[in-house]
Design a protein around this nucleic acid. Structure first.
Length: 650
RNA sequence: GCCCGGAUAGCUCAGUCGGCCAGAGCACCUGUCUUGUAAACAGGGGGUCGAGGGUUCGAAUCCCUCUUCGGGCUCCA
């Protein structure tokens, strides 16, 4: 009789297994279903392959395909299969790194003679991957000496860089002269720390998505590799659900809806990244802005205006020309050599307003607000619809206050921002705190630390989930940004609040305190929409074009059943307009069904149908978006209902 | 900026190997129809095939440059 070992499970219970039993054996001893779902195990807190032999006293949990780490492993293993397929099919190809990522994985390759993958290649690679999966090749872990590894991977220069420690690879483990590898016999071996699924047969619910260029080690000075992205899931059902989700996201893409709903466009004649808003988009935008103005006014902000261009010395003084000249449109030279720049931001203008006279502590906090249009020369490859444009309006405010007032002002600003975002229909948030950039930063570490502490405290006081973004701050100060999740779960960076000790210093701002001495104010930069255009795009995608009644360009469409109901319909439109609603009608020159359909495709909140009964009784047939038809609704009752919708921002 | 893939009517798209006056659906215009809740019928107009250059007897189609869009990389004050 062989000797036994004792294993402790996560619930504290113990199990006896034969000596030499593996993680997989443990799963099988617990149940057939667990064994089937098992991907890897966690042994004493370290993730291990299912073939890992257990030792007496180990604490083990089985990680299944429904676990995040299990899915991560499936994606990681699928990346290896991708690499094997590519090396099989493309003689002379070499491979770099291939980690799991959100929803899938990628692998970077370099083809001989700067070759590239075509869409047809992806199909061939997919086919080869499925053959490899069918072969059920085991994943075999090994540790070899560095010198042996360098010999084994001598044809793969990127792998050699990783082995020598010259390049980071999050997926490999190279320490003290030993290199860990995983082999899929008979042909493929890769540097890898693992763990992996037991064999390639465990995989299969994947799809290769696209080819992209990517710089080696993420540095644009390095050669560009060919990256293949794929998605991988534990089951066919999950894969299909993911692909459906992508389709859904594509359907609500703001660039597509902008054309379909006639909201805005990017005429080629104007240039890349520069939008024009059409009348319907203009209505939505105007209402967004009007509401924002009203709320800012109530919150104690004062409205200012500033020009679009300025002499270069303003941005020299602010430091922007030192750090971000590349991101600015080149200057116009006027007046015998004076250079004027389009403004990439509004802060210096607001600072000049603050500095235009002697300020007393009694005036603080001074909150200056402007819808300021700025122009940034975004690199040609990064421009994207309304979310990354070259010209856009910021709902920009700068709060000048004393150091002592800053925490309360920050808290107040965050409150305001969250409250307002909720009014626009976003209510699922978390907060990101960005700290001092490695390069490109002004100010001492102490000042940064102080500012970061204040922001951290404010966010935690609000009970917000806080995510750190190390090194992500602006050059003049740390930043807190509100991330909002939209209707289909995507997160968008929305509002930012930044504390700034630097600019007041650079512009030598001061106020006279109660002690009759001059003091330096601090400055808070904050934008709620960030960019009006971008926020417009987020709302458009969030609502999939079906804007709530308060924002909808047309709130009510009236459809007369026959020509002889036209007059009643016209009068009804007038009554609705008089009540303050945006309403129109379509005369009865095509059948009702067709007109209903068109209104539905325009995603209008309400369609009203009026026929004989309605003319006789002053009623309407109400066809609400997403609801059932209601007949014989009194006109007054409908007006009250629409009014309530608008007031509730529903 | 870099890699890959696109650009044909207002929109979505077809157009074979380089070969007749470049097509469809929707939209638009005109007429007929007078309609009770997601597509009435008929007719019509509309294109310098993104721009410029080249190859060719002949280019939407092949080559080059540019503009612009999409997916990534890098970037995002």
């Amino acid at each position: 009789m062989s000797s036994q070992i004792t294993i402790t499970l996560p619930d504290g219970s113990e199990r006896q297994l034969d000596e030499g039993a593996t993680v997989g054996d443990l799963a099988a001893s617990i149940g057939a279903r667990l064994a089937k779902a098992a991907v890897i195990g966690s042994v004493n807190g370290v993730e291990r392959d299912l073939v890992w032999p257990l030792a007496d006293g180990d604490v083990v949990s089985i990680i299944t395909e429904t676990d995040d780490r299990g899915l991560y492993t499936i994606r990681h293993s699928t990346a290896h299969v991708l690499a094997q397929a590519v090396l099989d099919l493309f003689p002379g190809a070499t491979f770099a790194i291939g980690p799991p990522v959100e929803n899938g994985f990628y692998y970077d390759f370099e083809l001989p003679d700067r070759g590239t993958f075509t869409p047809d290649d992806l199909e061939r690679i997919d086919t080869r991957m499925r053959e490899i999966i069918k072969e059920q090749q085991p994943f075999i872990r090994d540790e070899i000496a560095e010198a042996v590894a360098l010999e084994l991977f001598r044809d793969h220069k990127y792998k050699c860089e990783i082995i020598r420690g010259a390049a980071e690879d999050p997926m490999s483990a190279t320490e003290t002269g030993l290199v860990r590898t995983y082999e899929n016999p008979p042909r493929f071996i890769d540097l890898c720390r693992g763990p992996h699924v037991p064999d390639t047969g465990r995989l299969g619910h994947f799809k290769l998505m696209r080819v992209a260029g990517a710089y080696w080690r993420g540095d644009e000075k390095n050669p560009m590799l060919q990256r293949i992205y794929g998605t991988a899931w534990a089951s066919k059902k999950e894969l299909e659900a993911y692909l459906t989700r992508l389709e859904e996201a594509e359907k609500r893409d703001h660039r597509k809806l902008g054309v379909e709903l006639d909201l805005f466009s990017f005429p080629e004649e104007i240039g890349s990244g520069l939008a024009v808003f059409h009348p319907k988009g203009g209505i939505i935008r105007r209402i967004m802005e009007d509401y924002s103005r009203t709320r800012h006014e109530q919150a104690g902000y004062e409205f200012v205006y500033s020009p679009h261009i300025t002499k270069s010395n303003l941005f020299e003084k602010s430091g922007h020309l030192d750090w971000y000249a590349d991101g600015m449109y080149p200057p116009m030279e006027l007046d015998g050599g004076t250079e004027y720049y389009l403004k990439p931001m509004n802060c210096p203008f607001h600072i000049l307003i603050f500095g235009s006279g002697q300020r007393s502590y009694r005036e603080l906090p001074l909150r200056l607000f402007e819808f300021g249009t700025v122009y940034r020369y975004e690199k040609s490859g990064v421009v994207q619809g309304l979310t990354r444009a070259r010209g856009f309006a910021q709902d920009d405010a700068h709060i000048f206050c004393t150091r002592e007032q800053a925490p309360a002002e920050l808290a107040r600003a965050l409150d305001f921002v969250l409250d307002l975002l909720r009014d626009y229909g976003l209510d699922d948030f978390y907060v990101e705190l960005s700290t001092k950039p490695e390069t490109k930063a002004v100010g001492t570490d102490e000042e940064w630390e102080e500012a970061i502490e204040v922001l951290r405290t404010v966010a935690l006081d609000k009970g917000m989930q806080l995510v750190m973004d190390e090194g992500g701050g602006a050059f003049y100060g740390p930043k807190i940004s509100v991330q909002a999740r939209d209707a289909i779960g995507r997160t968008w960076q929305m509002s930012t609040i930044q504390l700034d000790f630097q600019l007041p210093q650079r512009f030598d701002l001061s106020y006279v305190g109660a002690d009759n001495e001059r003091h330096r104010p601090v400055m808070i930069h904050r934008a709620l929409f960030g960019s009006v255009e971008r926020f417009f795009a987020v709302l458009l995608e969030h609502y999939a074009g079906a804007f709530p009644a308060w924002l909808a360009p047309v709130q009510v469409r009236v459809l007369p059943v026959r020509g002889d109901h036209d007059q009643f319909a016209r009068d009804l439109v007038d009554r609705l307009r008089a009540a303050g609603f945006r309403s129109d009608m379509v005369v009865a020159d095509e059948p009702l069904g067709g007109r209903i359909r068109k209104a539905k495709m325009e995603k209008l909140p309400y369609v009203l149908v009026v026929g004989d009964d309605d003319v006789a009784n002053d009623t309407v047939g109400v066809n609400p978006r997403g609801g059932d038809v209601e007949r014989d609704v009194a006109v007054d009752a409908f007006i009250a209902r629409l009014g309530a919708d608008v007031a509730a921002h529903a």
